[in-house]
Design a protein around this nucleic acid. Structure first.
Lengths: 190, 190, 190, 190
DNA sequence: TATTAATCGAGACGGTACGTCAGGTCTTACA
DNA sequence: TGTAAGACCTGACGTACCGTCTCGATTAATA
């Protein structure tokens, strides 16, 4: 019972070119300088090809996020069994990223995009705090640290950790030695 | 022994009109529909009068924040002595605000503004998590809940709490009964 | 073997609307009150559509001139065979035009435009003094009046006549009876 | 012997500074880039001091003209007794001026100013064609050339000559050898 | 195999807003 | 009171993008 269709089919090349151009421009110039026209030009694509498939630039970014083109594999926490050690490693990586010009811009761009487009917000939280990432890691650590006793609200703890990082990014406060430890102490207990 | 002042002087009327128009438009239409031109028109002011004193619309918002025109007194947590009760009250209020159309828009607008303008980020964190607000309240509660023993990193706990709320706002997840309790459990312990 | 043409095409409607709006505004308000923004608004057109095709408002005016929308057919001198009679008729018409509010404004507007934009200057001289107009008429009169003997520099005589009219327009001197006769005597001889 | 420095009397220093600044800017940047603000800044004067004494920038220019600060002595025709020779010399000088970047700009600036401000128009015609200049010179040549018989309308002949030069300036046509001769032939006869 | 219809690159269109320049008015502090 | 300075509202500048709408060419399924 499908409608009769003819004609060519969505071009995967165009789709990828668009996503890649979006990532590149987001990295280079930030969310507020990101324009559909810019993406189209960089991707060598007509504007209509973007508007045909995405309702807004937020949706394009959300798809980049979904394809893992924005937050890389590196942002998944390791799992050595020692949660404090793992999160230390992970936070060091995250803060190092935030310390770099492009990483900082990228995260803030994503936050700006999330503030404007519901879908980006959802995906962003999923990518960072969701069960594939911090939340999942914390779940496996239940019972090994004071603040994660049996039955602890793991998702909320994950949100709190990620949220603290985001707040930090928004306030542009320089990261100093001991910050990671204190943050982990706040979240996991001593 | 007075400072030598010469030439005409900045118009306080214009300044206030601009800040008020900014607050009004931010509330009504959100950050991404906020335009300098719109502020000027609403305030009955020339655009140049805005550009003369503020470098960007972010700076205008930061000044609104600084003047307490955006986050009201109501967002300061009560202090009855019982931290869990107080934060429950406060979170209920915050989530109620987030549940309303204008409150949600306002917070997300502020986040968007913070993502684009360093100063807004700083002020926002100060207003929400700073020692006048959550952080200060937590400080007085040290020793009364499991996760706030003597010497606990209070500022980081405050960041975690506020951060969780922000993450929640970004993801537009509906607030459900029990969420407040679980979040407090995550932050303060059982 | 045809030229490959692709993409959308210039809108003739928009072009005409712009030229007509320009003529109307130039007539109503004069050159110095003529603005691109005003033309766009009156024509119901985006500003960019003007800037896309013309480099300056002078160029728009030049195109109006070229299309004969500013200096009408009426400004071509008649040809009855009697040059003095024909130019008298023509100068009467021109001075009558200059005497009217809108005619005077129009010519001075054109002069102002010519002073600022080379192309308008060229077209203006062509329209008034060129071989389709005064110069052509004079050419046919060679040998019939004292100052136009065989081999006389007809183009220069035309320039002198038109130039005198322009100087007159610039100085806003009221036209008085006998002025036309004296001017023709100066140019054609007694 | 003391200069009036300030107080309730018009400052001649300020007046001159304004006129000089006007001449300088008109020469450097042309009429359409001439601004009251620019004049005030260059003259080291408050804007109000200009507005207090002149109704428009045209009036300032007219006063410059009146003071002989714009059209120099050099533009008065010589008088050797031979009108054709004298006007050849004079036209050579004028066309040389028009050939130079600044001279051409200056004349066109004056024309633009004349088109917008009646007073400039009057003064301009006076300066160029008036009895102190071309018209006077022609008057003394009556009877020495074919087109200037006894009783010839000298003022109109002067207007025609000056007008031809102005038309030439407006059309930006390059001056070529023989042009001067042809123009003089047109005006004075062979 | 020819027809048909959706896709593509391109880019013109009516708009909104940008950040800047200047206009002309008004106010302040000084001489 | 005249002046230098400069803030104020207004309005126009020329530019960047928005999202919509053709255009002509290309391409795959349908007839």
């Amino acid at each position: 019972m499908s409608l009769p269709r003819s004609g060519p089919v969505r071009s995967e090349l165009a789709r990828l070119a668009i996503l890649r151009a979006t990532v590149a421009l987001l990295t280079e110039r930030g969310y507020d300088h990101l324009s559909i026209e810019g993406i189209a030009a960089r991707a060598g694509v007509g504007k209509q090809t973007i508007y045909r498939w995405w309702p807004s630039k937020g949706a394009v970014i959300a798809e980049c996020l979904l394809e893992g083109m924005l937050l890389t594999e590196r942002l998944r926490p390791p799992d050595t069994g020692d949660i404090r050690q793992d999160l230390t490693t992970w936070l060091d990586r995250v803060f190092a990223l935030l310390g770099s010009a492009e990483g900082e811009g990228m995260l803030r761009s994503l936050i700006a995009a999330a503030a404007e487009h519901a879908e980006v917000g959802l995906r962003l939280r999923d990518s960072l705090s969701g069960s594939d990432s911090i939340s999942g890691r914390l779940k496996r650590a239940v019972g090994t640290v004071p603040n994660l006793p049996e039955g602890a609200p793991v998702d909320e703890v994950a949100d709190a950790l990620i949220g603290a990082v985001i707040l930090r990014a928004l306030s542009r406060t320089a990261i100093e030695p001991g910050d990671v430890d204190r943050l982990l102490e706040a979240v996991l207990g001593r």
